[in-house]
Computed example of a mutant assay.
Amino acid sequence: MGQLRIEKVQELIKQEVSKIILQELKDPRIGFVTVTQVDVSGDLKYAKIYVSLLGSQEEVKNTWAALQSSLGYLRREIGHRIKLRCTPELSFQIDKSLDHSVHIQELLDKIKKNEAN
């Protein structure tokens, strides 16, 4: 399948999942969620949705549980909104890149402070 088509499907899924989480999911456990990336397999049968979760450990745990329980609803909605021959099987992955960048920034600040002394 063409790489351009896969990229378009990834972007469409990212936009729609973000919109559904923000506006339509009514689960009170869902906190601050950002969809950072979507990876779709070459045959468009599987989609990994990378999310960044913010909050305390308990809030992150509750949000993760709520997202996992909403996978069926999200897949059905994606199937209705994006016309594909078969709707991809969705799975969530936690995106740690934000935590990693904060850690790197802290290390750089520490090095800069040590050089100033």
Rank of each mutant, 00 (worst) to 15 (best):
I13G: 10
K19C: 04
E24Y: 09
E106F: 09
K48N: 05
V102D: 10
V9M: 05
I30V: 12
I13P: 09
S52F: 10
I82T: 08
E89L: 10
R76T: 15
Q68G: 05
D43W: 11
S101G: 00
T34A: 13
K26G: 11
P88D: 02
Q15L: 12
K45C: 03
Q93M: 13
I82E: 06
S69K: 14
E77D: 09
R29A: 09
T87R: 02
Q105T: 12
S41P: 14
W64K: 13
R75A: 00
L98Y: 12
G31K: 13
G72Y: 07
G31I: 06
R29C: 10
I104F: 08
P88M: 02
L53Q: 08
V17C: 06
L25G: 08
K96R: 12
Y46H: 15
I30P: 11
I82F: 05
K8F: 01
V9G: 05
I13S: 08
I49E: 05
L74S: 01
V38R: 09
K48A: 07
Y46W: 13
D99G: 15
K45T: 11
Y50H: 11
I104A: 02
R75P: 01
K8T: 09
L71E: 03
G55Y: 02
K19V: 01
D39C: 01
A65R: 13
T34D: 04
E106H: 14
G42T: 09
Q15P: 01
F92C: 02
G42Q: 10
K61V: 00
I82N: 03
V17M: 06
E59C: 02
I78L: 14
S97K: 08
Q23Y: 11
V35Y: 13
L90Q: 03
F32D: 00
F92H: 04
L107N: 01
Q93E: 14
K61D: 13
H100I: 07
V102H: 14
P88Y: 01
I20P: 10
I82G: 09
S41H: 13
S91W: 00
T36E: 03
Q57N: 09
Q10M: 11
N62G: 04
R85D: 00
V60D: 01
T63H: 04
T63F: 03
G31L: 07
L71W: 05
R29E: 11
E7I: 02
Q10I: 01
I82P: 06
L44I: 12
V102I: 15
E16M: 04
G31F: 03
I13H: 08
L22G: 04
T36A: 07
L54H: 00
L54D: 10
G72Q: 07
Y73L: 13
R85P: 01
D27Q: 07
R81F: 08
K61L: 10
L90C: 04
R29K: 14
R81Y: 05
L44G: 00
H100D: 15
Y73H: 07
I94Y: 12
E58D: 15
E58A: 14
W64D: 00
F32R: 08
S52M: 08
T63Q: 05
I13L: 12
I30S: 08
E59V: 05
K83P: 00
I104G: 01
G42K: 14
D39N: 13
D39A: 08
V9S: 05
L25A: 07
E59W: 03
